[in-house]
Amino acid sequence: MSRIVVSDVWQEYGDQIVLERISITIEPRSFVALVGPSGCGKSTFLRLLLGDEAPTRGTITLDGAPLVAEPGPDRGVVFQRYSVFPHLTVLGNVLLGLELSGSRTRIRLFGAARRTAIDAARAMIAAVGLSGSEDKYPAQLSGGMQQRLALAQALVMKPKVLLLDEPFGALDPGIRAEIHELMKTLWHETALTVVMVTHDMREAFTLATRIIAFERPRNRPEERERYGANLSQDIAIWPPRIAGGPSQFSPDRDGPATDLGQYRDDPTIPPVSGA
């Protein structure tokens, strides 16, 4: 599975300390939402998980192996913008991952391998509700459809971890609700750990199993440089959402809670008595 262990991570840019003393264990199959005010290092933290940056201090391990400071096919990503390739059609975008991972030197697939890949890509496109748009370019799609495409493109690689950087922030509420449903379905049906950065508390509480808040404990102007953000809240959603399990929730808000015997997505933590 895909347990991410972050231990005592600091991230500094020159004199500026952005994150300090970050330690967290993200269990397999959990859906973690990272929330917090702007500029508090949520996206920086996501980039560390992605391998786009290396932490100044501390270690991050995925399944016990230290994370290389380079993005790789085990971690999929969807950004708020620029996640899809403008020069490829919908099918081409989803196919790209299969083509690239098919071989390290060849840049295209041929024959049977290509047909298999196209079938897989079409199935993924259908799963995110984009059937019929296979030959369109991203510029011809609406914002919501582009993000669906980005999800399909990332998920066709079957990553262990899916990292989302405010993926639905630019969408209007109706489209966002639809894509939340899609996200829930995908999370339930795919063997996936999700870490999502969001500004939207409602989104965090609608989707996640666990919500982590980033905050700068010292935020006076003269302190900003030298003190980074750390984890101020770690909220487990109640009743717990279990990946693949039946939902305890009415579509958008919490219904009556029943005790499933687990307090949070982290099974190693014993249930709180009386909860």
Binding site: L50, D52, E70, P71, G72, P73, R75, G76, V77, F79, Y82, S83, V84, F85, L96, G97, L100, S101, R104, T105, I107, Q153, A154, M157, P159
Partner: peptide, 13 residues
């Protein structure tokens, strides 16, 4: 570029 790397692309690809 990050996305392409998460799709398993090498520098050449």
């Amino acid at each position: 570029l990050v996305k392409a790397q998460t799709l398993g692309g090498s520098s050449w690809q």
